[in-house]
């Protein structure tokens, strides 16, 4: 084998080996590196008790309720599964915190299953469009790049 071919062969082998190692590491990290738990994850694995965690999903349509004190809100986080998480938060929410929009909350689960958040972040989706197109959200999704 010519030295050039040998080097090529060795290098390709090394790349494949590193790639394999990283894929293995990534699959092992799948759960640890999750930034938040979705309602389906909580339903499957149980609500983590006694420590701060993040949960995330969509704010269910019509679920935001402002309590009598004016600063505490309750809302329901859903995902594509039938499961939901009830959340209570006291404080100011980001501008993008809306119903049927993404949310990530950091806080603790109570024994009752209620999630008490001390921080709320808004998570938006991958759609970008002018306001007047909002109503046609569904049709817009698969626009071709051309």
């Amino acid at each position: 084998m010519k030295p050039k071919t040998q080097r090529l062969f060795l290098l390709v082998l090394a790349i494949v080996a590193v790639l394999g190692a990283v894929l293995l590491a990534m699959s092992a990290l799948k759960d640890q590196a999750a930034y938040f738990y979705a309602p389906a994850d909580v339903a499957r694995e149980g609500a983590p008790q006694g420590r701060n965690v993040r949960i995330g999903g969509m704010v269910r349509q019509g679920s935001i309720r402002r309590n009598a004190d004016g600063v505490t809100i309750d809302f329901v986080v859903r995902d594509d599964s039938p499961h939901v998480i009830n959340v209570r938060y006291r404080g100011i929410v980001p501008d993008l915190f809306r119903e049927e929009s993404g949310v990530v909350a950091e806080g603790r689960f109570q024994e009752s299953g209620l999630f008490v958040a001390d921080e709320i972040l808004a998570k938006h989706d991958e759609n970008y469009m002018p306001p007047q197109l909002d109503v046609k959200k569904g049709e817009h999704k698969s626009e071709s790049l051309k």
Partner: peptide, 18 residues
């Protein structure tokens, strides 16, 4: 992974964009 960052908007491979 679950991330705060939103998903991919533009895919050149699939020639699609949101």
């Amino acid at each position: 992974w679950n991330t705060l960052h939103q998903g991919q908007s533009i895919s050149f491979l699939r020639a699609s964009s949101t």
